[in-house]
Computed example of a mutant assay.
Amino acid sequence: MAATVTAGTSTGMGMTTATRTDAALLQLLWLASPALPVGGFSYSEGLEAAVEQGLVTGEASAGAWLADQLHLGLARADLSVLAQAVTAWREGDAARVAALDAWVRRTRETSELRLQTEQMGRSLLEWMKAVGADAADLPSPAPTYPVAFALAAGRSPAPLREIALAYAFGWAENMMQAAIKSVPLGQGAGQRILARLAAEIPAAVDQALALGDDDRQSFAPMLAILSARHEHQYSRLFRS
């Protein structure tokens, strides 16, 4: 049974008890929410450029593109970093945290992808301060987004796998919204894409958790090319 965080409180429905597992779950839901003010909604991670180039033209191709990005990009890079960074933060291993953060920065293949992870990392630390974290306990300069997310989520007792699931689902929601705006698609199509990604996220997370340092990689040539083109795209909605 989960350990109690607070005593039972009286409600109209009787007595309720908050537990550590409740708090951890709610923290992950909060961190995964598109309403979190970290700016994730303003990035498409190359999807807008793929639409511009005619590689993504509708619901099916958008779903396939994002599923490939989940397995070939997120699972092999950020999700693996995230899991390893949670452990490093919890163990107080500053050198390991710094090494993981440096890996994220040097494997971003375009300036806009690097700026995205840096801006979202800074914004997440600002959010942590806004909701009560002591600024003296937070790193400076701010780490990249997956490392910052690991810090925020790792302060709860949530297991690594659940933290990675939350991170991946938050990414999927943002990318689904990017697809709706850039293709464009209707809300129903967006929800079907999100359902597909949600079904594939557990396997992607398991893949990420199994990776060691020598297995982790960030190699997606087409995405890098599209991102570089997007930096000079004449008309665009998104920052990446």
Score class of each variant (00 low, 15 high):
15 M>C: 03
83 A>W: 05
152 A>S: 04
84 Q>T: 08
41 F>L: 03
112 E>M: 08
43 Y>F: 05
190 G>I: 05
226 L>E: 05
169 F>V: 02
49 A>V: 02
107 T>R: 13
80 S>V: 07
163 I>V: 02
185 L>I: 02
95 A>G: 09
150 A>T: 01
161 R>K: 10
93 D>M: 10
99 A>S: 15
71 H>A: 11
232 H>M: 04
216 R>S: 07
137 D>F: 00
115 L>S: 12
43 Y>R: 06
13 M>P: 00
153 A>E: 04
217 Q>E: 02
39 G>H: 07
132 G>H: 13
38 V>Y: 01
178 A>S: 11
12 G>R: 15
161 R>I: 08
181 K>P: 00
19 T>V: 08
116 Q>C: 01
17 T>M: 08
48 E>N: 12
24 A>T: 07
147 V>Q: 06
200 E>T: 05
214 D>W: 05
58 G>N: 14
80 S>C: 13
54 G>S: 10
179 A>G: 01
109 E>P: 07
47 L>D: 01
29 L>F: 07
141 P>R: 06
81 V>A: 02
163 I>S: 00
208 A>T: 07
239 R>A: 08
233 Q>D: 10
207 Q>L: 07
108 R>S: 12
72 L>W: 09
219 F>L: 05
198 A>C: 04
64 A>S: 15
174 N>R: 11
178 A>K: 09
139 P>I: 08
140 S>A: 10
25 L>G: 14
237 L>Y: 13
79 L>V: 08
95 A>E: 15
154 G>E: 13
53 Q>K: 12
202 P>V: 04
20 R>D: 02
26 L>D: 12
54 G>A: 09
76 R>V: 06
42 S>A: 14
175 M>E: 13
216 R>M: 12
137 D>A: 09
108 R>K: 14
31 L>H: 06
59 E>F: 01
220 A>K: 00
17 T>Y: 12
228 A>M: 00
43 Y>T: 05
100 L>D: 09
198 A>Y: 10
188 G>A: 14
17 T>W: 15
104 V>E: 10
56 V>T: 07
201 I>V: 15
219 F>V: 06
40 G>N: 15
104 V>H: 03
227 S>P: 02
82 L>W: 06
129 K>L: 04
68 D>V: 13
107 T>N: 14
182 S>K: 08
65 W>D: 09
181 K>T: 07
142 A>D: 06
142 A>T: 03
106 R>E: 15
68 D>T: 14
182 S>Q: 03
127 W>H: 14
193 I>Y: 11
171 W>D: 01
223 L>E: 12
135 A>M: 08
49 A>R: 10
160 L>S: 11
23 A>M: 06
87 T>M: 12
192 R>I: 04
159 P>W: 11
130 A>T: 11
215 D>G: 09
43 Y>H: 10
167 Y>G: 01
61 S>A: 07
56 V>P: 06
175 M>L: 09
14 G>N: 04
41 F>A: 09
6 T>C: 03
163 I>Q: 01
77 A>F: 14
186 G>Y: 01
18 A>T: 10
41 F>E: 11
98 A>G: 10
34 P>L: 05
62 A>T: 05
202 P>H: 10
163 I>D: 01
99 A>V: 08
156 S>V: 04
195 A>T: 09
215 D>P: 00
191 Q>T: 07
154 G>K: 11
166 A>Y: 02
170 G>R: 02
200 E>I: 03
149 F>A: 01
240 S>K: 12
30 W>C: 08
188 G>F: 09
95 A>L: 14
122 R>L: 09
210 A>T: 00
